[in-house]
Design a protein around this nucleic acid. Structure first.
Length: 815
RNA sequence: GCCCGGGUGGCGAAACUGGUAGACGCACGGGACUUAAAAUCCCGAGGGCCGCAAGGCCCGUGCCGGUUCGAAUCCGGCCCCGGGCACCA
């Protein structure tokens, strides 16, 4: 056979790079689309670590399939990409290479952007944002100042999480479980420092309630955020201190158990401890705290404490209670002081048993109150030994006792949150400088807007030693006070990089805006994000900060949104040999090598085919080959057919109807997958079935049918394998982008089967199959089933007790 | 400990609303083409039993039980794996 009519073999390297270059130069994925409804598809912006990894590829392959489908469906799609470009790795690289962190960062961005383009992801690159550029971070500073004016940014001294490896402070969210989020083997230390905070707690209630307005977020993420916010209702009760002084405020959710209190417990760092304790005791308190810091991550610390020598009075019973310091009482939650009720709280039970404090039962469970409880009774019941409240149901007692405390002025009902304010100061170089100036005369003075941005210095040498680089650079911090003009010192801390990512997708809508962070009309047009796609690891950190930013910006009048993201999709992880891919394990798969061997289409398509996108999957090196083979089949079948160049090779067309039926059935399945659960693995399987059927029946196809099926196949393939689809589309003589063509129209009539298989069961067991028209009625199906050569003998001489007929599906005889 | 997910062939998975379990693919076996190989194409394949064969029968979706004409799917109990949270008073 003649080589030219046969065509060359499928070699993605022969056409993918050319289209990638063309798309990069012409940016065809910007602009407007036939006036459809707006659809903002967003993938989490990556940290420019150097090269794309498979997690990125999966994230973007999902987002891009969706963005391309939505465009073809007729939506006005916004699909931007950018770079979360501040952060520690750039500093470490700078120390090693003796360069500016920007050099390393920008080089990585250039490389990764090239990879994105090589993959054919349909981003609108005119909207690209890199958070490390002054054009971006000046708006971090601007927003910080607006927050400051509103009291949403403030400075306070307190205990903070310090990661010795990062050599910086971390927010609570970044030090979960006492370990650094970036160094899971590193225990954070507690240090007392003065730091900047964002008042996220002002929105605790709204952040919690807002979760109920996000039905299209995964339940798992909403639950995690709910737990993180940790709302609990209870009461604050004051216990008068014997011998004078301010009363001790205690937070409890179980005021009903107050007659069972055996002691008052203070957190070791409670401010009262400093007043009440003598020097020796203060040393003891410090020791308690330090021992906590030395535990291995996850290790349960033993409960320890000591008696202060002072007593407080129970405002209900009048009882005298010893005041202790206890290591398990947290200063950061409630009031930092609790009442110990060992009969009804497991922790207090352990503590009081150890130190032989009295254990009493004041809420009797249904089976009666034990004299000496073996464990804390945390359930409900009727009160006992509780003065005038004895006999009352404990739930009612809570309300009555709270009312009493309020009436008598020694307490009130309150709500407590686990969520704490977001510490945003970082003692690092490569971040947004905090735009504040400390003046010896005027105090903290904000940098005036017209002086923004406060730029990071150019001439720095990062050594990784000593204090933070900005603090060491006098030319940076030496300045004058904007108020009095006297000598003053700039803030040398930079912002947490989670500030950058809290609003970046607002910037995408008007990235060139010079007067403000983003344009209100553009926000009104594009936000909220219709579909956000990313990893589950950001369920709490990023996704709670960005919700907070939206609410704060709304209250500043910058936008009108309550929530920034309508629908959230969390993709599964890709593992290899059962473990997370990492350089140290040596089990990484490099997307660049896959492109080299199989092309971008096969690589993207395989990660979608291997598993449903929300599930984890273990990488299989041979799996990509299957997709590559499939694309090769498409190339050989659809390539010649697309242009109708084989007109003379067409046959009588006896197979046309069957294959067209198949094509429309495939279209129905794929459309349904896009509109529903995004199980692209089954979409791709459907495409494979179509191609298999075509290959098997190719000899019975007319040239016209071939052309039509080929056209539909390429359209359906376009969201998954855009290069191949586009290449064959153009070879068929079309102009423009296949990705900008309308999605094919489904024809129910063509998709209709004229004969289906009905199964026949006897006692629920499959015994025969018969063919029938889909609309065949029950009586006729039963008649045909009874007459079937396999079934008739089984029914001979017996009358079925029941006959179940489900038209279109089955007949079941119950004997 | 508490709260979520999830257990289906050798492997990744499919089965959409309770109705043919294992689509599609990987790996594997056999064959065609080829001097040969690669590529490609065709065929086979959950396990067991009967049969020369066509074919037939039984078992099978983590385990035990239930509901139903019919259960991977619904209900109850248990086991295992993965993830999140964990002194939050």
């Amino acid at each position: 056979m003649d080589e030219s009519s046969q065509g060359a073999a499928y070699q993605p390297a022969s056409f993918e790079p050319a289209w990638a270059r063309r798309w990069a130069a012409e940016n065809p994925f910007a602009g407007v689309n036939r006036g459809g409804r707006k659809y903002y598809v967003l993938e989490m912006l990556p940290y420019p670590s150097g090269a794309l990894h498979m997690g990125h590829v999966r994230n973007y392959a999902i987002g891009d399939a969706l963005a391309r489908y939505c465009w073809m469906r007729g939506d006005e799609v916004l699909h931007p990409m950018g770079w979360d470009a501040f952060g520690l790795p750039a500093e470490n690289a700078a120390i090693q290479n003796r360069t500016h962190p920007r050099t390393w960062t920008l080089r990585n961005i250039a490389h990764m952007k090239g990879q994105d383009q090589r993959f054919g992801f349909s981003y609108d690159w005119t909207r690209e944002v890199a958070t490390c550029l002054p054009e971006y971070y000046r708006w971090n500073q601007w927003l910080f100042l607006r927050f400051y004016e509103r009291g949403l940014a403030y400075r306070k001294k307190g205990l903070v999480n310090w990661c010795p490896k990062c050599a910086t402070v971390l927010a609570n969210e970044q030090a979960e479980g006492g370990v650094c989020w970036r160094h899971e083997d590193t225990q954070v230390e507690q240090r007392e420092l003065e730091q900047w905070y964002f008042r996220i707690t002002a929105y605790a209630e709204e952040l919690l309630r807002g979760l109920d307005t996000l039905p299209e977020w995964p339940e798992r993420v909403r639950t995690m955020q709910r737990n993180w916010i940790g709302r609990s209702e209870g009461a604050e009760v004051e216990f008068a201190l014997e011998g004078g002084g301010a009363p001790i405020k205690v937070f409890t959710t179980r005021i009903d158990t107050i007659y069972g209190a055996s002691a008052i417990l203070l957190a070791p760092e409670h401010p009262l401890a400093a007043e009440l304790l003598d020097a020796g005791q203060r040393e003891q308190a410090r020791a308690l705290r330090q021992r906590l810091g030395k535990l291995a991550p996850g290790e349960e610390p033993p409960k320890e404490g000591f008696f202060t020598g002072r007593y407080a009075r129970n405002p209900f019973s009048g009882e005298r209670l010893p005041v202790w310091v206890a290591n398990f009482v947290l200063m950061g939650y409630g009031t930092g002081a609790v009442m110990a009720v060992p009969g009804h709280d497991v922790r207090d039970f352990d503590f009081c048993r150890k130190y032989e404090l009295p254990i009493r039962v004041v809420v009797a469970p249904a089976e009666g109150a034990p004299e000496r409880p073996e464990a804390a009774l945390e359930g409900d019941g009727a009160l006992v030994n509780s003065g005038p409240y004895t006999g009352m149901d404990n739930r009612q007692a809570m309300a009555a006792m709270t009312a009493k405390a309020e009436a008598d002025g020694f307490g009130k009902g309150t709500v407590s949150y686990r969520l704490q304010d977001w510490g945003v100061s970082r003692q690092r170089f490569w971040g947004t400088p905090i735009p504040m100036i400390a003046c010896p005369k005027c105090g903290m003075v904000p940098v005036p807007d017209e002086q923004l941005p406060v730029l990071l210095p150019e001439n720095v040498e990062l050594t990784g030693e000593g204090q933070s680089p900005l603090a060491a650079d006098a030319s940076f911090w030496r300045t004058t006070c904007p108020k009095c003009g006297g000598e003053a010192r700039r803030e040398t801390d930079t912002m947490d990089t989670f500030v950058d990512s809290s609003w970046y997708f607002y910037r995408y809508v008007s990235p060139q805006s010079e007067a403000r962070p983003f344009e209100a009309e553009a926000i009104a047009r594009w936000l909220p994000v219709d579909q956000y796609i990313g990893g589950i690891e950001h369920a709490i950190l990023h996704l709670i900060y960005t919700r907070f930013f939206t609410k704060a910006m709304r209250d500043l009048g910058l936008c009108r949104l309550d929530e920034p993201i309508t629908r959230l999709f969390t993709q599964g992880m890709i593992t290899r040999h059962g473990a997370k891919m990492s350089k140290s394990r040596g089990n990484v798969v490099d997307p660049a090598e896959l492109i080299e061997r199989y092309g971008a289409d096969a690589t993207r398509m395989y990660v979608l085919f291997a598993a449903p996108p929300e599930k984890d999957f273990d990488w299989n090196d041979q799996g990509v080959e299957g997709i590559h083979r499939f694309l090769g089949r498409v190339w050989r079948l659809a390539g010649p057919a697309a242009g109708g160049r084989e007109a003379q090779g067409g046959s009588d067309g006896t197979g046309d109807a069957a294959l067209l039926r198949r094509a429309h059935q495939t279209l129905r399945r794929i459309t349904r997958d896009f509109e529903g659960r995004w199980h692209f693995n089954t979409s791709i399987a459907a495409l494979m079935e179509l191609v298999n059927a075509w290959q098997a029946g190719d000899g019975e196809l007319s040239a016209g049918a071939r052309g039509e099926v080929s056209r539909m196949l390429l359209m359906m393939l376009a969201p998954f394998a855009p290069f191949l689809a586009h290449e064959l589309w153009r070879r068929a003589g079309h102009t423009g982008e296949i990705g900008r063509e309308p999605w094919p129209a489904f024809d129910a009539e063509l998709a209709r089967e004229d004969e289906i298989e009905i199964i026949v069961q006897v006692n629920g067991k499959l015994r025969a199959r018969l063919k029938a028209a889909p609309e065949t009625e029950a009586a006729e199906l039963e008649r045909a089933a009874r007459a079937h050569e396999r079934i008739a003998p089984l029914l001979a001489g017996a009358t079925p007790r029941q006959v179940v007929v489900v038209p279109g599906r089955l007949v079941n005889f119950v004997l």
